[in-house]
């Protein structure tokens, strides 16, 4: 969906500007907390006919509400700690109230979908590169398939597969698969075609077979493209898994936590699920980026 988007792994001398902006954003966040939660506090004071709170009373009050319109960052951090670290200390890291448990549910669907999607994407790309008919006929439909808002079909796939008795991991993983195969196909087709004519001619003069050309030239040449696509694919798989959890009636997973939070107005819960999901996405992309550097190093190339 978003080819060529993710390149935040290369941060040379950007730490100070990035940290400055993050600080500014957190400051804006706190300002918004006061501004958005203040009406509730004023209402409360009015209802029990107390004088309107002064600013010094108002500001701490807006940051300690139970169901704030916008929770303060520290409230979210405390909630995340309560549902992860504190759970581990109590020795129940996988209880149903623990975000670790919900993250694991989402993560397993993400990874399964990502693996299937990557395998499928690579196979399609190999077919497209080696067969002209497939190139001309499949490629336009691969692109069209992504203009379909696939996430919209997600609930139906889940419910329908549930109805025929397939439930649990696989339906969610299928949505992740569908979302992640596209960047892999596009990237791999580009990558497998990246060797230039001189290199292909060289393989020809060695009288290399198609398989040999593939394994010794095309496949290694496609690695940078593959990993760039994989970063996008894993991020998008996570989105697929989260949305896949919405229609199952908020049973388990980060998406379910968000839905349950929105049913009961538990804003802090929604935000903590959201932040956890973001952290998960960041870690996953970083792992792929790390694998990228590792593979390129072993191939004797300077990582881009």
């Amino acid at each position: 969906m978003a080819p060529g988007q993710i390149s935040f792994m290369t941060n040379h001398g950007k730490a100070i500007p990035v940290l400055t902006i993050i600080t500014i954003l957190i400051a804006i966040w706190y300002a918004c907390v006061v501004w958005m939660n203040a009406p509730f506090e004023r209402d409360k004071a009015e209802r029990i006919s107390k004088p309107a709170p002064t600013l010094s009373q108002l500001i701490p009050a807006t940051m300690a509400q139970e169901r704030p319109v916008l929770p303060a960052p520290h409230q979210v951090v405390i909630e995340i700690w309560k549902t992860t670290g504190a759970m581990v200390q109590k020795g129940r890291p996988f209880s149903k109230r623990s975000l670790i448990y919900h993250s694991w549910v989402t993560l397993s669907a993400t990874l399964l979908g990502f693996l299937i999607g990557t395998a499928l994407g690579i196979m399609l790309a190999v077919g497209i590169v080696h067969n002209r008919a497939m190139d001309k006929s499949v490629m336009p439909w691969v692109i069209t398939s992504q203009t379909i808002p696939i996430l919209a079909i997600a609930p139906m796939i889940i419910v329908v597969l549930n109805a025929v008795g397939i439930s649990g991991l696989l339906p969610k993983a299928l949505i992740s698969t569908y979302l992640s195969f596209f960047p892999v196909v596009v990237g791999m087709v580009k990558g497998l075609r990246s060797p230039d004519a001189a290199q292909l001619d060289l393989m020809h003069t060695y009288s290399a077979s198609r398989a040999q050309t593939f394994w010794k030239l095309r496949w290694p040449a496609s690695m940078p493209y593959l990993f760039t696509s994989l970063k996008i694919a894993i991020a998008i798989s996570l989105v697929g898994a989260i949305v896949g959890e919405l229609p199952t009636g908020a049973v388990a997973g980060l998406g379910a936590r968000m839905l349950a939070g929105s049913y009961y107005g538990q804003t802090i819960q929604i935000w903590s699920a959201l932040i956890t999901a973001s952290a998960l996405a960041a870690v996953l992309v970083m792992i792929v980026g790390f694998a990228h550097t590792l593979v390129l190093k072993r191939m004797g190339e300077e990582p881009a």
Binding site: A2, Q5, I6, V239, M258, I270, A277, A282, V285
Partner: peptide
């Protein structure tokens, strides 16, 4: 870098 990072997040949440 922040914008790139945010693009990878599940904003749909």
């Amino acid at each position: 870098p922040l914008g790139n990072f945010v693009s990878a997040l599940p904003i749909i949440g």
